[in-house]
Design a protein around this nucleic acid. Sequence first.
DNA 1: TAAAGGATAATA
DNA 2: ATTATCCTTTAT
Length: 183
Amino acid sequence: MKKLTHDFYVRDTITVAQDLLGKLLVHRMESVERIGRIVEVEAYLGAHDLAAHSSKGITKRTQVMYGPPGRAYVYLIYGMHHCMNVVTEPEGNGAAVLIRALEPVANLPGNTKGPGLLCKAMGITRERDAHELTSDDFFIAEPETADRIGIIKRPRIGVDYAGDWAHELLRFYIEGNAFVSRR
DNA sequence: TAAAGGATAATA
DNA sequence: ATTATCCTTTAT
């Protein structure tokens, strides 16, 4: 399996977000290897993006987003669900890509349509916050066979409070895929 | 459509 | 220390 390296993540966030579609998210734990194909993502561009957590500046929570790219940013939302992001762009930009839905590939029980559900199925918790995605137990890889895919662009979900940023087309998903959370 | 639930960040 | 808020899900 071909693991994505630092060079992949350091690029422009929108580019990385769209390139992540079709890639494989791999999490190895307690001798099980869980694998899901990324079918839906959202781009969070940095401090100027009012919908991004990093727009509040550097805090204990957001310092991961401002750190080096290629790391996981995992947080708890609404007191009960975990969401996973991937930090992008050079250190200091505070940009990241939220993984919103997976298509099950291996050892993924239950629903993976939605950021909270996918983390539950993958076994991802805050213990994986700031974890290097170039590591051997938690990473993103290039699939063996990459078919050509169509990309649909839509406004992000759950960010109505972000003013004009709420309308930006920063949510991307694979056209026609049955595992996209909403359409 | 609304309630749940805990961490977070702002306020005091 | 207290409170408003939240990149969601589930159940009514």
